[in-house]
Design a protein around this nucleic acid. Structure first.
Lengths: 334, 334
DNA sequence: ATGAAAGCGCTAACAC
DNA sequence: GTGTTAGCGCTTTCAT
C-alpha cells in the first residue's frame, strides 16, 4: 500500500504539503504542487478513506435508510440520491429498515460508529429519541415524508393532500359516481394525507359512506386483498383511488381476475408514478411524485448541512402531477 | 464521544485490556472482564469502527455491486445478502453499477480506500483487470452469475441452461407448437445460457427458424418492444419463452394491448421468479431461481474468505424450479 | 493476565 | 509556503 509519506518522500516535501494539494486547502507553490501531483501519478497513490475519516471525522459517506426496498418507488429514489451524492463526491450506504424501528436504530448506531457524514431517512419509523440522539451526536440528517411529531427537521415530501384531491376529481371528471379509497398504513403520514384528501373531496356526495375506505399495506398483496374486500362490500363501486401504485397494480390484477373490466366497470388511479404502472394492461393512471427531484433535493440539503451550511429546518413540499392513462379512460361507448 | 480510554480509566485497567474484552481475544481475568463490561455499560460505550478499521484493516463491511437496482430481482437478492451479512455482524454497502464498467471500477476504488472486507459482484461488467486488481489488493470477492473469462473465482449462479430447457418443454407440454424466445444482452452469461437452452431444445422442430429469437434488454421496455417486433414477424407464434421476468411482464402487456389473448393464443413463460409475475393478470409462469439462496450462499462464501478460510474457487450452481401459472395454462376449450 | 508503546494513514494547528 | 508535531481511537506486539 502506498501512503502519503511515500508520495512526500518521492516529491521531496512533507506529508502535510501532500495533504494540502490533496485537499486543495492551504497555500502551496505551483511548482511544488506539480511535483507532488507527478509523484501521486507515478505511485498511483489513492488516499486512504479510513485514515482520513479517523483524522478528520469526515468520511465522504452519506447513508440512505429505506423502509422497503421491494417497492420500486424506493429504488427509483435511491438512484436519484446516489446520482447527486456521487456528483458531489460522496458515497452512499444503503440500509433497509423493513419498517422496523429497531433495525433502524441499529443502523443509526452502525453509521455513527463509521462516521457517516449524514443520513437521509425515508423511513417512517424514525422516532423522536432517534432524532434526539442524532442531534446530540451532531449527525446531520434529512427526512423524507415526515419528521417525528414535535421535531423541527428538514423534511422533503410531495403534496400528498393535493395529489389525492386531484386523483378523486379526475375520477369524478371521467364519470365515476361511487369512488372508493384503499389507504396505506396510517402511521405513515403520506398514507394519512392521501386518505384525508380523498375524504375531504367526497364527504359531501350522497353516495359517500365510510366503508368505502379500505385499509391496505402499501404492498402488492395488500392491494389485492383490499380490492377483493371492497368489491364484495360495494359491488357498485365504479372508481378506486389507491393509496400507492404498488397496491394499484395489485388492485388491477384482482379486479381483472374477478372479471371486472377496467376502466369500463371500475376506474383505477394510483399514486407515486413508478414505472410499473406503465407495464400492466391497462396502464394505470397515477398521481406522479417527482421521485428524482425528491431524492435530489434531500441529498442536496443534506450535503449542505454536512458542509456546515445553516439549512433552515422546514418542510419542502414538491408538487405532483396527474398522469391520465387507460385505467381511467372515459367510457366512450356511452 | 466516549473512547476506549474512558472505559479503561473508569474500570482501572489499560486500553489494551478493554480491547481484549471487546474482541474476546487474549487472556483476561473474569473479574477484570466484569469490571470492564460494567464500565462499558455505564458509559454506553460503542467502539469506533473507523479507528478500528484503521488499526486492524478490517471494517466489518462488505459491499454488494448490483447492475440495475430497478429490476426487482436485485432488491430481492440484496435483501438476502443483507440478512445473512447482518447475522454475521457485517454491514452491507450497496452500489449500483448501472451496467457500466467504469462506474463499477470507481466503486472498487472507493471500496478499497474504505477497507471494505469483501465484495459481491452481481454485475456482469466485471473485467479481468478488475479481478487482477482485487487479487493484488487481497480483497476477497465472490461473483454472482459469472467470472471474467479465464479467471478462477468463486461463482454462485443458477442452472440457467436447464431452466431454459424446462421452460421450453413446459410450453411444448401445454400445447404450444411454435415457440419464440426473447433473449437478454449476450454479454450476460445468464442471458446466453438461457438462449442456448432454448435453441438446443427447439432446433430440430420443423417450425424452428432463427428469426424466432428476438433480442431484448432485460428491462420492461425491452420486453414490450421485442414482443411487438416478434408478433409482427411471426403472427402465428403461440408460445414465448422470455429471458427474464421483467421482460415477460412487458411482453404480456404488449400482447394484451395488441388484443392477443394469453394464454389462449400465446402462452408466456418468464425466468427469475420475482414476485411481480404474480401481480399481473394472468399470472406469469416462470422458472424461479432460488434468489434468497443465491444471495445467502454468496454472502457465506465471502465471509469465509474474509475470515481467511481457503474457499475453493468453483462454480456453485443452484437448481431452478418451474412455477406453472395461468399464462401457460392449457386451453381447456379444445 | 495485564500494561506500555508503537503505529495504522491521514489531518490540522502551529511554528518557521 | 512548508515542515514539525501531535493526535484521531483503536489494535497489537512485546515485556513484565
Amino acid at each position: 500500500m502506498t501512503t502519503i509519506r511515500d508520495v512526500a518522500k518521492l516529491s521531496g516535501v512533507s506529508a502535510s504539503t501532500v495533504s494540502r494539494v490533496l485537499n486543495k486547502n492551504g497555500y502551496v507553490n505551483q511548482e511544488t504542487e506539480q511535483k507532488v501531483k507527478q509523484a501521486i501519478q507515478k505511485l498511483q497513490y489513492e488516499p486512504n478513506a479510513v485514515a482520513r475519516g479517523l483524522a478528520s471525522k469526515k468520511t465522504g459517506t452519506i447513508a440512505l435508510i429505506l423502509p422497503n426496498i421491494t417497492n420500486p418507488f424506493f429504488p427509483e429514489l435511491a438512484r436519484a440520491v446516489e446520482d447527486v451524492a456521487r456528483s458531489y463526491g460522496y458515497t452512499v450506504l444503503f440500509g433497509n429498515s423493513d419498517d422496523q424501528g429497531d433495525k433502524e436504530k441499529s443502523y443509526i448506531e452502525v453509521l455513527k460508529q463509521r462516521y457517516v457524514d449524514g443520513i437521509i431517512f425515508s423511513s417512517h419509523t424514525l422516532q423522536r429519541d432517534d432524532v434526539v440522539r442524532l442531534r446530540s451526536n451532531k449527525i446531520p440528517f434529512v427526512v423524507l415524508d415526515r419528521a417525528p411529531v414535535g421535531e423541527a427537521c428538514s423534511v422533503v415530501r410531495s403534496n400528498n393532500l393535493e395529489g389525492a384531491r386531484m386523483a378523486v376529481r379526475h375520477l369524478l371528471d371521467r364519470g365515476s359516481r361511487k369512488i372508493a379509497h384503499i389507504y396505506g398504513p396510517q402511521e405513515i403520514l403520506t398514507a394519512k394525507e392521501r386518505l384525508r384528501g380523498y375524504e375531504e373531496t367526497v364527504k359531501d356526495f350522497g353516495w359517500y359512506t365510510p366503508t368505502l375506505m379500505v385499509p391496505g399495506n402499501f404492498r402488492l398483496d395488500g392491494g389485492m386483498s383490499a380490492a377483493k374486500e371492497l368489491m364484495q362490500r360495494h359491488p357498485d363501486v365504479d372508481g378506486i383511488f389507491v393509496g400507492n401504485d404498488l397496491m394499484a397494480v395489485g388492485v388491477l390484477k384482482t379486479l381483472l381476475r374477478m372479471g371486472i373490466k377496467v376502466p369500463e366497470q371500475v376506474a383505477v388511479c394510483g399514486f407515486d408514478g413508478i414505472h410499473l404502472t406503465e407495464a400492466v394492461e391497462p396502464e394505470i393512471t397515477t398521481v406522479a411524485q417527482p421521485i428524482y427531484e425528491l431524492g435530489a433535493l434531500a441529498t442536496k440539503l443534506l450535503i449542505q448541512k454536512v458542509n456546515g451550511v445553516d439549512v433552515e429546518n422546514k418542510v419542502h413540499e414538491l408538487e405532483v402531477t396527474l398522469i391520465p392513462r387507460d385505467s381511467t379512460r372515459k367510457d366512450t361507448s356511452l
